[in-house]
């Protein structure tokens, strides 16, 4: 592209980070409040898509050299194995556990096995969304 859209680039650099931070907030808000892996993943994907849109495919591919198929695989694996973990202790598949802990900075925090499961979903959603959008985009060029 010869005419570099400077305003777009500048705004994107800021906005993308705001969206990313918000997506992480949403991810951790999840499980008991609105939020979670799915919506956090979509939000992250939207930030990345914004990057792809305002810069071009090659530039971002250099910055983020992921094969998104592997991201989907990693997410699925994490989510499935979280369900399996309980089976070793004789609980049915997908049983979830939670406990409250005193963490140094955060104070009393609820730690749940739903979190790694959610992280798996997050990875699947990010990987899937970007894989689809990029496949369509590359097909066009």
């Amino acid at each position: 592209m010869k005419n570099t859209p400077i305003q777009l680039h500048v705004v994107t650099r800021i906005v993308a980070f705001i969206i990313l931070i918000f997506s992480i907030f949403l991810f951790f808000a999840g499980h008991n409040n609105p939020g979670g892996g799915f919506i956090g993943g979509l939000m992250t994907a939207s930030a990345l898509v914004l990057l792809y849109l305002s810069f071009d495919l090659k530039t971002i591919k250099r910055v983020l050299p992921f094969d998104y198929a592997y991201v989907i695989g990693a997410g699925l694996l994490l989510a499935t194995l979280t369900g399996v973990a309980g089976m070793f202790f004789g609980f049915p598949y997908l049983t979830q556990f939670f406990e409250y802990f005193q963490l140094p900075i955060l104070g009393e925090t609820e730690l749940t096995t739903a979190l790694p499961f959610d992280l798996g979903i997050y990875l699947v959603v990010v990987g899937f969304t970007l894989l689809v959008i990029l496949t369509v985009a590359e097909d066009d060029s």
Partner: peptide, 24 residues
Amino acid sequence: MTNLLILPILIPLLAGVILIFFKN
């Protein structure tokens, strides 16, 4: 309440997911 029942679903699921990493 036996986990054996989930295995016919879980085994192909896990195997399928692992194979994503060995596509070549």
